[in-house]
C-alpha cells in the first residue's frame, strides 16, 4: 500500500462524512449540535404540528414540546415520550450508533436501546432555538442555484459514505 499522507498535511482531507439516507417523513430534522441531540418530529395526528425534542449530552436531560412551546403530553410520566424515541432512532440511522453515542458520551452496543442507556430526567430546553434552526435548514432548499464556479468547493470532494 502506498503510504498515505498525514491527516495534518492534507488539504482535501474529509472531516465530515456524508450521513446515511433515511426516510424523512416522521423526523424531518436531526442534528448533533449545541451540545445536544436535537430535532423536529412530525405529529402523528396533525400535519401542521411538529414537536421539538432534545437530549443534552452533558446531563442526558430530555425535553419535548410543540414548536409553540406547549409541553408534550407524553412526558408527563417523567420518562421519554415517543417523539424522543423516534428522534434517537433516526439519529442512529442518520449518523450511525457510534457517532451518536460518542456525542452523547454514553456506552451502548449494537443490541442496546439507546434511550435505555440514558439516565437523565426531564429538563427545560430552548425549543424555539431548535425550531428556528430547522427553518433555517429548510431555507437552504429555497436558495437559488448557481452557474458561477465556486473554486472553494475543491476543498470539499464528494466522497463515499464509508472510509476507504
Amino acid at each position: 500500500m502506498i503510504e498515505t499522507a498525514a491527516r495534518e498535511q492534507r488539504s482535501a482531507e474529509p472531516v465530515v462524512r456524508p450521513v446515511r439516507p433515511r426516510k424523512l417523513g416522521k423526523v424531518p430534522f436531526v442534528e448533533l449540535a449545541d451540545g445536544r441531540l436535537q430535532g423536529v418530529v412530525s405529529s402523528g395526528s396533525d400535519l401542521a404540528r411538529v414537536y421539538v425534542s432534545s437530549i443534552s449530552a452533558a446531563t442526558h436531560g430530555f425535553s419535548c414540546s410543540t414548536n409553540n412551546n406547549r409541553p408534550c403530553g407524553g412526558l408527563s410520566g417523567g420518562s421519554p415520550c415517543k417523539h424522543l424515541r423516534a428522534l434517537a432512532d433516526e439519529a442512529v440511522l442518520q449518523y450511525g450508533l457510534d457517532r451518536v453515542t460518542r456525542y452523547l458520551r454514553v456506552e451502548a452496543g449494537d443490541d442496546d436501546d439507546l434511550m435505555s442507556r440514558l439516565d437523565g430526567t426531564r429538563e427545560a430546553a430552548p425549543a424555539a432555538g431548535v425550531f428556528s434552526r430547522f427553518l433555517r435548514h429548510l431555507a437552504y432548499l429555497e436558495l437559488p442555484g448557481s452557474t458561477a464556479p465556486i473554486a472553494e468547493m475543491h476543498w470539499f470532494p464528494a466522497v463515499s459514505a464509508e472510509v476507504r
Partner: peptide
Amino acid sequence: SVGAAKVDTIVGPAVWRLL
C-alpha cells in the same frame, strides 16, 4: 460548474435532483 444549496439528509443519487 453547476451548483445548488442542499441539506445533509439529501445524499447519494438524490443529490442530482437539486441540479
